[in-house]
Nucleic acid binder design. Structure first.
Lengths: 197, 197
DNA sequence: ACGATGGTAGTACGGCCGTGTCACAACCGT
DNA sequence: ACGGTTGTGACACGGCCGTACTACCATCGT
């Protein structure tokens, strides 16, 4: 078989296989064999790329961070002048499609499901920090567009916004989710309105 | 050994053992043997009370729902006249001590960690519903005390408040938590203030 | 063209898992 | 006092786990 494969690409495929298993069968179903089967490779082959299970979980989490960062970067680079665009930027942070739902489920399942894994804890902190900074950036844009009352404590409001976004995300995740996407958008819209003059 | 033991009491002990294992070692470490050891009984003995692992997880989740409901009932029964009391009622919903942290970790780990378990999905819906009703009740009390603008959509605000509470709870949960309890209370206080006239 | 290189797949091993079974010990009603 | 009931603990079983090892093979550099 081919002498050289793209390791990064293979790692991403395996990480996405982990995502799907976590979303479909839960964290407990994540085993080397299941992931290999889900990704369509043999278990022995998987071990050449990710030698241990901990590496597997770390790779899954790293890809979450990477994808989320890339998505936000793509959004934030564009000039964002009006209210609808700010709302769209925030909506981007919600798990409203399959990929983002998979990512968030993975993120939460790993963070809550395996404490004592230092790498995962570090990556969680990275992600939380990015969320807060993203909310802060969105607020700065909104402020520049004159959408915000001038007397707001932007640091506190960024934190509050991040909390709202994460809370919405949590309630959007099925199964057993109790929130419709439209309701989530309504909450976000109402929150932004409450920050206005 | 004694012919009659209190089954409910034993179930609660075992459920709390599950909580501790989830918080300390993660969901993957929850096995019949580990739980039995944590609770100080033999595995065979455990099986007389909770025959299968699914029963074990269900019992753990049921105790979460039960304790949370009892705690809220104890708070809500008291007359709640002023702003500080409303804030205290909401703070009650946050994982600011060991027991509530254990409960929330269990709740989230189970909901996110084992999809396809119908009983857990049902219990999650129960809990989410209770949270929303609790927030609605708190808002009603605040409104009766004249702490709210009269033009608010209380249903939407209850949802937003529930989202804030859950978001705060999520960020308060260690390890890797990025939120201090005082910051969480500040967010809650700011949120309540933003609802005022 | 042909070894060297590096990915692949199959197998093996020790360990823990969930669950079933069963003999035994402690308490109850009679 | 004693037989029945009920909780207990120990073991057995089949299965899946993570990991290690080792032939095999397609490609690449020479």
């Amino acid at each position: 078989m081919p002498r050289l494969i793209d390791h990064d690409h293979r790692r991403a495929e395996l990480a996405e296989a982990v995502w799907r298993i976590i979303a479909r069968d839960g964290l407990e179903a994540v085993s080397v064999r299941h992931v290999a089967a889900e990704a369509g490779v043999s278990a022995g082959s998987l071990r050449h790329v990710l030698p241990t299970k901990a590496d597997l979980l770390t790779a899954a989490m790293e890809l979450v961070v990477e994808r989320a960062a890339a998505r936000f970067r793509a959004r934030a680079d564009r000039p964002v002048p009006d209210r609808a665009a700010v709302l769209a930027l925030l909506t981007e942070l919600l798990p409203l499609d399959e990929e983002r739902s998979l990512e968030l489920r993975t993120h939460l399942a790993l963070v809550l499901g395996s404490p004592g894994h230092p790498e995962l804890v570090r990556l969680r902190a990275t992600l939380d920090d990015a969320l807060r900074q993203g909310c802060r950036a969105a607020l700065d844009l909104a402020a520049a567009a004159g959408l915000l009352r001038p007397d707001l404590d932007l640091d506190l409001e960024a934190l509050r916004l991040a909390v709202v976004v994460d809370g919405l995300a949590l309630h959007l995740l099925g199964p057993g989710a109790d929130l419709e996407p439209t309701a989530a958008e309504a909450v976000l819209d109402g929150h932004l309105a409450a920050l206005g003059p």
